[in-house]
């Protein structure tokens, strides 16, 4: 007979578990990029309305995170990286995650429409739909291009921020979108390289699973080259200024060096040092995105001062 008394049930739900459903780390990037989009936009916006807009964009991002955790609980439970998330861990039921996600999605879109405008609200609604339905329900389990196309969801926030301030879409906001869009694949493929067994076990068709690790390394290099061209090219549009240009050149050279090193390694070398290069590339990719947007912000501040 099994020893039922040794079963250590899930502990009581805490407020923090619901916060976890909103993927706070992803949300921090959403908040930051949306803020840059909003601040860079010409015309400006009342600070209180700007604050409310960022808040509701973040909530919308959180809503799509909760919907993702509801739908992907089966995958998350298998992968070591995600097994401790609230739903697979049993602290929050899948139904609660779905209810929270749907509720916050509706709330955030309506409130963003009221606080800013309906163009921004429409973009936010599309972003939530794209992440929760197009990426999570459809692409993620179907194609190795999952994160390439799904990356669009993460790329929308600066465009929403821009739209909140201006009520429209422009070349600059599309450039900010493109920067995050092109950054996402190398970022996640580096993760897939060192999370080696996870995606295999869960049956998620990541590039590492379907086309092998060699192909993934080549893809990282190719996408990084395209990204570098785009990031430096963005410096010649209205987004760029002296600080952005300087930062973009340094960051993209460093990123390219990392991608080349990943490309030149094989699995034996990676195993030998515990995927140190891939992990460093992944961590640097976060800094890379943060500093590009930070530099845009700094250039805007510089213009104000001069």
């Amino acid at each position: 007979m099994t020893d039922a008394t040794s079963f250590d049930g899930p502990r009581d739900v805490r407020f923090g578990d619901y916060v976890q459903l909103l993927k706070p780390r992803v949300m921090s990037l959403v908040v930051f990029t949306a803020l840059v989009g909003l601040v860079l936009a010409p015309g400006g916006i009342n600070p209180m309305l700007g604050f409310a807009a960022i808040l509701f964009i973040a909530l919308g991002g959180g809503a799509s995170g909760a919907l993702n955790m509801w739908y992907d609980a089966d995958i998350d439970a298998v992968m070591r990286r995600t097994a401790r998330r609230p739903v697979p861990d049993g602290r929050v039921t899948a139904g609660e995650a779905r209810a929270l996600g749907l509720g916050l999605a509706g709330l955030s879109v309506i409130m963003l429409g009221l606080a800013a405008n309906w163009v921004a609200a429409g973009l936010l609604a599309f972003t939530i739909f794209f992440y929760a339905v197009v990426y999570t329900m459809w692409l993620k389990r179907a194609t190795p291009q999952n994160i390439v196309i799904g990356g669009a969801a993460g790329a929308f926030p600066p465009m929403i921020g821009w739209a909140a301030a201006t009520g429209g879409v422009s070349v600059e906001s599309v450039m900010m979108f493109a920067l995050i869009f092109m950054w996402t694949p190398p970022h996640f493929w580096a993760l897939a390289l060192f999370m080696k067994e996870d995606y295999h076990k869960a049956g998620v068709p990541m590039l590492t699973v379907t086309h092998g690790r060699r192909a993934t390394r080549v893809h990282i290099l190719v996408y990084t080259i395209l990204l570098a061209g785009l990031a430096i090219g963005a410096g010649f549009t209205a987004l760029g200024g002296p600080i952005y240009m300087a930062a973009a050149i340094v960051l993209n050279v460093l990123f390219l060096i990392g991608a080349v090193r990943i490309w030149r390694r094989d699995e034996g070398m990676a195993e030998a040092d515990g995927y140190a290069v891939e992990k460093r590339f992944f961590r640097f990719s976060l800094l890379y995105l943060f500093l590009h947007f930070g530099a845009m912000l700094a250039d805007t501040a510089l213009l104000e001062v001069m």
């Binding site: 619901y18 209180m48 409310a52 009221l114």
Partner: peptide, 22 residues
């Protein structure tokens, strides 16, 4: 569940404050 309830209460208060500000 005290922590949970306090968290929900603070969230609602914050929401009201934001709505008031807007």
């Amino acid at each position: 569940r005290l922590g949970m309830n306090v968290g929900v209460a603070l969230t609602l208060v914050a929401f009201v404050a934001v709505m008031f500000g807007v």
